[in-house]
Amino acid sequence: MTVTVRLKFFASLREKLGEGDTLALPDGSTVAAAREALRSRGGVHAEALAPGRAVRSALNQKMCAETAALADGDELAFFPPVTGG
């Protein structure tokens, strides 16, 4: 079984990776698995989502940890940390 998630990218990640995409993953996958699958595409994906890069994630519009489990039809967003002023 697989789950398909809708991806969204914001701020500098959107500039590099585009507005969004879809990603099919094995059932039981996590946010970390999605990030790794995107990195495995190579090129700008590997650079923008590299380990150690500060990237936050939100699952269905709520901040989440990389251990969060994904379900079919979820919306997963990636964005850099933001600061306010």
Results as ranks from 00 to 15, higher is better:
51 P>T: 00
52 G>L: 13
46 A>Y: 02
25 L>Q: 06
12 S>A: 12
83 T>L: 08
6 R>L: 13
76 L>C: 08
5 V>M: 11
45 H>L: 09
65 A>T: 14
7 L>A: 04
58 A>N: 11
58 A>K: 12
41 R>K: 15
67 T>Q: 11
79 F>P: 10
85 G>T: 04
27 D>K: 14
12 S>D: 11
18 G>A: 06
32 A>Y: 03
19 E>G: 13
85 G>A: 09
2 T>D: 14
28 G>A: 05
53 R>D: 00
35 R>F: 00
13 L>I: 07
71 A>K: 15
4 T>Q: 15
49 L>M: 03
83 T>E: 10
36 E>V: 06
84 G>A: 14
61 Q>V: 02
10 F>I: 05
40 S>H: 12
53 R>H: 10
72 D>Q: 10
13 L>Y: 02
51 P>L: 03
54 A>H: 13
50 A>L: 12
9 F>Q: 03
34 A>D: 10
58 A>V: 11
64 C>I: 02
40 S>K: 15
31 V>L: 07
79 F>N: 09
37 A>C: 06
66 E>S: 10
76 L>F: 05
62 K>V: 14
10 F>P: 07
71 A>L: 12
16 K>T: 10
48 A>K: 10
7 L>E: 05
68 A>D: 12
28 G>N: 07
84 G>S: 13
62 K>Q: 15
49 L>Q: 01
18 G>I: 10
71 A>S: 15
23 L>N: 00
79 F>K: 13
42 G>H: 06
19 E>C: 07
65 A>W: 08
59 L>G: 01
67 T>L: 04
75 E>H: 06
73 G>Y: 09
49 L>A: 01
34 A>G: 10
72 D>R: 13
51 P>Y: 00
65 A>I: 05
26 P>Q: 11
26 P>Y: 02
56 R>L: 15
53 R>G: 00
13 L>A: 02
74 D>C: 10
31 V>S: 01
57 S>N: 14
12 S>G: 03
8 K>P: 00
25 L>S: 04
25 L>G: 01
11 A>T: 13
68 A>Q: 13
55 V>L: 11
24 A>H: 02
55 V>E: 08
23 L>D: 00
42 G>Y: 04
12 S>H: 12
30 T>H: 06
79 F>I: 11
66 E>A: 08
50 A>M: 12
69 A>N: 05
69 A>F: 08
41 R>E: 11
30 T>G: 02
63 M>H: 14
10 F>V: 05
79 F>E: 09
38 L>V: 01
25 L>P: 07
24 A>N: 05
77 A>K: 03
33 A>E: 15
81 P>M: 13
24 A>M: 12
39 R>E: 00
76 L>H: 03
70 L>E: 03
23 L>W: 01
45 H>P: 00
54 A>I: 02
